[in-house]
Every structure is written in structure tokens, then in C-alpha cells.
Amino acid sequence: MWAIDTAISMVDLTTLEGADTAGKVRSLAAKARRPDPDRGEVPKVAAVCVYPDMVATAKAELEGTGVHVASVATAFPSGRSIMAVKLADTRYAVEQGADEIDMVIDRGAFLSGNYGAVFDEIRQVKEACGAAHLKVILETGELATYDNVRRASWLALLAGGDFIKTSTGKVAPAATLPVTHVMLQAVRDWHRQTGELRGVKPAGGIRSTKDAIKYLVAVHEVAGPEWLTADLFRFGASTLLNDLLMQRRTQLDGHYSGPDYVTVD
């Protein structure tokens, strides 16, 4: 139960579809505030994650609830645009009220060895974020090797990313446990060297409670117990929440639950 509730409180409830509308975002926000309408004691999720043009809608629904609004930016998900556009994208999202920005790195630059460009870009976006927290999406599915993941993680941490995040959710494979392991090692090492705590967010492909609990164990064993908070660990997910809610009911009720007992939003 503790693990399930902790996982719920770490979810960045996400909708990143071309078909997103204000109605869709509003209903997701309601879900974020009260994930299980029948059971008020269920914790709120950490954040709702949307595209920049939906930030204002999400903000209006979540102001004062403690649930953050996260926005993807920097020509998400491909990151293929010019710097000016990426920065404008970021500033717009922040102006609209985003508490957190999820940027994508330039994988092309990274894979061609142009690490300086990647670093500079993260720096500039971090500056554009102002007070908003920055999550740096490495898109590990495109980086291909653990070495690359480790290197990109370190680059992002050096450049000032508050979180390193595995994936956009638009590329397969998205988050995997081994990749998350590598990233957790990176933040652990960063902490040892600098004393600073930075976060990790696996995103995409985590659908079951069992998976979520495996990640929590990894967080505890690899990074350490102080990372078991929504300030330092998040799940980027859209369908995970309902499985967590169903398993929560199963634990409490003593029998298996079903999809009709959790909400479609």
C-alpha cells in the first residue's frame, strides 16, 4: 500500500496527443486532483504534463491544489528546430504558468559527438525556465547504448537539469529498468560529488503496478532512500495510474478489481 500510494504521488499524468483539447486536459486535471473518486484518501499525483498551449487550461484547473503543471517544450518530441524557436517555446510555457519544463535534447548533435552544442542548449533552456524546474529528456531509445545514456545524463546534470528523464514516450523503446538504473547511478554520483540532489523520471512504457514497484526498488537500492519523493523521482505515464488504483483496490478490498471501477478520463 505504501509503495502504491508513493508511486501515485510520483506520477506525472500525461497527455501529449495532437488531439488534445481543453476538455481532455480538464478531465485529466480532475483525475490528478482526485485519482479515485470513491476514495478521497488516495494521494494526488505530482503533476499534469501537457503541451505548451494547454498549460493555461491545466493551470486554471490545478492552481492551489499542489499538483504541478509540467509542459514539454523545445520542439517536443523531435527537438528539431532552431534555438530561437525552442527558447520561445520554453518561455511561452513558463509564462502560461508551467511549474516544470520537460525539454528534449538534440539527439542528432549528441550522436554526432557535438556534446558542446547539447550542453549549451540545455544551459540556455534552463535560463529561459526561470523559476520553473527543468527536466531533460535524453530519449534513451535513440541513444542506443548505456555508455551514451550515462554520458548524456552527466551532460544534462552539468548543464543544470533538475531532472533527467528517459523518453518522450513517442519512441520505442521508452523507459526501461536498466536505462533507469544507469540514470539513477548518475544522479547518485552527482550527489556524491556535489552534494546536490537531482531527480530522475522514467517515462513511457511503465504500465503496471508491478513495474512501478520494481522502479521504486531500483530508486531505493541504486540512488538511495532520499530519492523516494516526488521531488526527485517521477513516473511519466498515462495508463499506469489506473493500474495503480486497481491494485490499490485489490489490496484493500481483498479481491481483484476491474477497469469499470477506475475512471477513463
Binding site: R26, S27, L28, A29, A30, K31, R33, R34, P35, D36, P37, D38, T263, V264, D265
Partner: peptide, 12 residues
């Protein structure tokens, strides 16, 4: 209006 499935008034 502005009701979502995750509200009691949409469930009960």
C-alpha cells in the same frame, strides 16, 4: 458543467 469522470457526481 466541467465535470470529469473522476468526480463523484459523475460516478455516484
Amino acid at each position: 458543467s466541467g465535470v470529469s469522470q473522476a468526480m463523484r457526481i459523475a460516478r455516484e
